[in-house]
Design a protein around this nucleic acid. Structure first.
Lengths: 214, 214
DNA sequence: GCAAATTCTGCCGAAAAGGCAAAAATACCT
DNA sequence: AGGTATTTTTGCCTTTTCGGCAGAATTTGC
């Protein structure tokens, strides 16, 4: 096994990040259809063939960040204090990875890049599929984390798989809601509302005062 | 607006079905990589260009049945008796469309095609994304149906969108579970367990007697 | 340094993807 | 029926994607 901290691995991570970043940047700038893999490779100073060694296509390059982000949710759930209720851990984990502390004002550049990328993702149908695949690919890891936490079997029991799927679905709905909202909405409260409803069994919203769960 | 029952529309549906069927058949027979669009078009007696008028690619052609099936769930939810609890309607609708009455024996040919298609979709990684996209594309319609049923707003309220996403996630988990089970498992009970847990707020399964909820 | 393993790269052909306009089929009106 | 409008099918075309292959270049461990 190659040393994961050697020069080679570091360069690989750099190239990977550069390609993903270049893809997002070019697509934001020119629009999805007006960017070829050749352009991206040139912008990242590698050959077209090398791009293909890293990613299957433009979409995958853009979604790469989302995959890492989602996988980190599983880690956070595993690392949560043992006594904490499962749903609390879930909300914290999702929030920590999709709505970093500084939120909107403290211009976390990485978060800004991610936000731009996601907006693109939702615009182009070819990218929606990739986002979905990213969620799905993290689902197994998520299910294992939930199984760890609840003492269930990630292979044979339905419970952890169902919870993992619901985490993905709930996160997606919350993010999409904030992204499509006319006024910029912070993700945190929406996430709490979504998972609050889920943990309550999705009862019909009461007529009183809209459904701003709070 | 073209008459939907005219000859033209009927032929279009026929061509569409023939292409989807030919794609599934050829892919099952030769394997995903060994089928070109040219093969499919030839098998369906249309030009390659016509195939592309109907579907963006092999994957979409295979998933077409799944899309229709999912859209019909929305219709069923709309058509359910007004007094019936929402979750009851949902379980009925999903079950009706993914596990037809006669179950295995009453060979609904369309159902057979769908089943083959789904098997393919889950087997080949290149196709899993298409299943996800199929679910997502039906999500909006599902949300509108739920909104109709619950008097919520499909645009601004989170509730209908969340329920729609959960229906998709729950169905997928149930189907996947049955497909991956070593012993052939009927979908109905699994579906009821999944949505039972969801309506209960996904409480941790009790230690007693496995997790066969309900 | 040196040998082994790994990655990068150019070259290649098969396939996909989609714009365009002529041809064919269907619909609709008189 | 006949004629016209609309829609679908088709062929032709270019550009881009996709991935196998082998040699060059780089990194690693010794």
């Amino acid at each position: 096994m190659p040393n994961s901290s050697g020069l080679r691995e570091r360069k690989k991570r750099q190239t990977r990040a550069a390609l993903s970043l270049a893809t997002i940047g070019l697509c934001l700038e020119r629009g999805w259809d007006n960017v070829t893999i050749e352009d991206i490779a040139a912008a990242a100073n590698v050959s077209v063939r090398t791009f293909r060694n890293y990613f299957a296509g433009k979409a995958e390059a853009i979604a790469a960040g989302h995959v890492e982000r989602t996988l980190r949710i599983a880690d956070d759930i595993r690392a949560a204090p043992a006594g904490e209720p499962l749903w609390t851990s879930i909300v914290h984990a999702v929030q920590a990875n999709f709505a970093p502390a500084g939120s909107a004002d403290a211009g976390e550049e990485e978060f800004g890049r991610w936000r731009d990328g996601v907006r693109l993702l939702f615009a182009e149908p070819a990218l929606q599929g990739e986002l979905l695949k990213a969620n799905a690919s993290a689902q197994d890891e998520l299910a294992r984390a939930v199984a760890d936490r609840t003492g269930t079997d990630p292979e044979h029991d339905i419970y952890p798989k169902l919870v993992a799927a619901v985490i993905g679905a709930g996160s997606t709905v919350a993010i999409e809601h904030c992204l499509h909202a006319e006024s910029p909405t912070p993700l945190g409260p929406v996430l709490r509302e979504v998972f609050g409803r889920l943990a309550a069994g999705l009862p019909l919203p009461t007529e009183s005062g809209e459904n701003s769960g709070h």
